[in-house]
Design a binder for these strands. Structure first.
Length: 352
DNA sequence: AAAGCGGGGTT
DNA sequence: AACCCAGCTTT
């Protein structure tokens, strides 16, 4: 067994040295701030998608002190389009903790790093190993897959038992002298060779001892227990325009797109025609006795999220000068929209 | 332990 | 349409 584990580690290190040509701007980086930033951006995000965001963030905020000093709105705007916006909120909190409590000096221990908002076991191990060469094994989607296949493990990865088992195993195959290089290597290997679909088993250096390959199970591991449930939602957005000004608000509910902005939203349980939306109690209460006029035909846009399908319908209305919006809404010009972060579906609508 | 959170690429 | 991505926090 030890032999099998050593073979695994050696193969990964050799593959990295000889075959790995995956270049990334944060690779070999030693500045913990830059490593941390890249890791937050890359959580559940493909390297290709996160790359340009990383470049823009580094350009805008060269140090953690710069990031900590920025306004929430500015940072969210830079994060716009990347998704999982809680990452942005936690990143800002962590930056301010480092700049304040830690006086601008990045924590140097695994525990100190892991205590930061938005930093879990994976991210802490990544930063600790890349920046400080500490022997902590990363366990991300790539590592789960490579280990599950090589060792032929069918324990679901999204369970407590699975996490415990894979965490243990990941630690056992970690290269203790070069944990940073090894961690990079196994993730690259998972992304380039041991891919989720159609892995490159022909010519894979692990193939001779890979349990999944030997048993023809590469398509069956890793195993996940939960199956995704996708719900449909119908968002009716009203662009209320008063003397050229638009009403927007920040989403504060525990829901998708928290901390992003939107127009007046009437959510309905099913697709709704103009009249249905305009006769809804919510809209009626909003308008009171004020008159209004539809100024543009409705535009429909669909967006597929991981757990929800959003059917959005945008309707433009003009309202009289005497109309006043309730608390929480901002009045902005179209020009000022660029100062706020919006969900992609709204960006798409505005750019259509 | 389970639920919830974006947007995009691949097949 | 299904699955996955350098996962984490909240319930």
């Amino acid at each position: 067994m030890t032999d099998t584990r050593n073979f695994f580690t050696d193969c990964i290190m050799t593959w990295d040295r000889v075959k790995n040509s995956r270049a990334m701007p944060w690779k070999g980086e030693k500045d913990p701030y830059r490593i941390w930033l890249s890791e937050i951006i890359l959580q559940q995000t493909r390297v290709e998608q996160g790359w340009p965001y990383y470049e823009r963030f580094i350009a805008a905020y060269p140090t953690v002190t710069h990031l900590a000093a920025a306004t929430d709105e500015e940072v969210f705007r830079l994060w716009q389009g990347l998704g999982y916006y809680a990452r942005c909120k936690n990143m800002l909190a962590a930056a301010r903790t480092i700049a304040g409590t830690h006086k601008g000096r990045f924590p140097q221990t695994y525990e100190g790093i892991a205590a930061l908002k938005g930093v879990g076991a994976y991210t802490a191990a990544a930063i600790a190993s890349f920046a400080f060469n500490l022997p902590h094994a990363v366990l991300d989607g790539n590592v789960y897959r490579v280990l599950a296949r090589y060792f032929g493990i069918d324990t679901p990865t999204d369970t407590t038992a699975g996490k415990k088992l894979f965490t243990q195993l990941a630690g056992e195959v970690l290269h203790l002298r070069q944990p940073g290089i090894y961690n990079q290597a196994i993730m690259d290997f998972g992304a380039v060779v041991c891919k989720p679909q159609q892995p490159l088993c022909q010519g894979c250096p692990l193939a001779a001892r890979c349990q999944a390959f030997q048993q023809g199970l590469t398509d069956l591991v890793p195993v996940k227990s939960k199956k995704l449930v996708i719900r449909k939602r119908y968002f009716n957005y009203l662009l209320l325009r008063k003397k050229g000004l638009l009403f927007i608000r920040k989403r504060t509910e525990k829901d998708i797109w928290e901390n992003l902005h939107e127009f007046v939203l009437i959510e309905t349980p099913a697709p709704a025609a103009d009249e249905i939306v305009l006769q809804s109690p919510l809209f009626q209460r909003l308008m009171g006795r004020h008159a209004y006029k539809i100024t543009a035909p409705a535009v429909e846009i669909k967006q597929q999220l991981t757990h929800q399908t959003i059917h959005a319908r945008f309707l433009q209305l003009s309202v009289p000068a005497a109309f006043n919006m309730p608390e929480g809404y901002l009045q902005v010009t179209e020009e000022q929209l660029k100062n706020y972060a919006f969900p992609k579906i709204i960006v798409d609508y505005l750019q259509r």
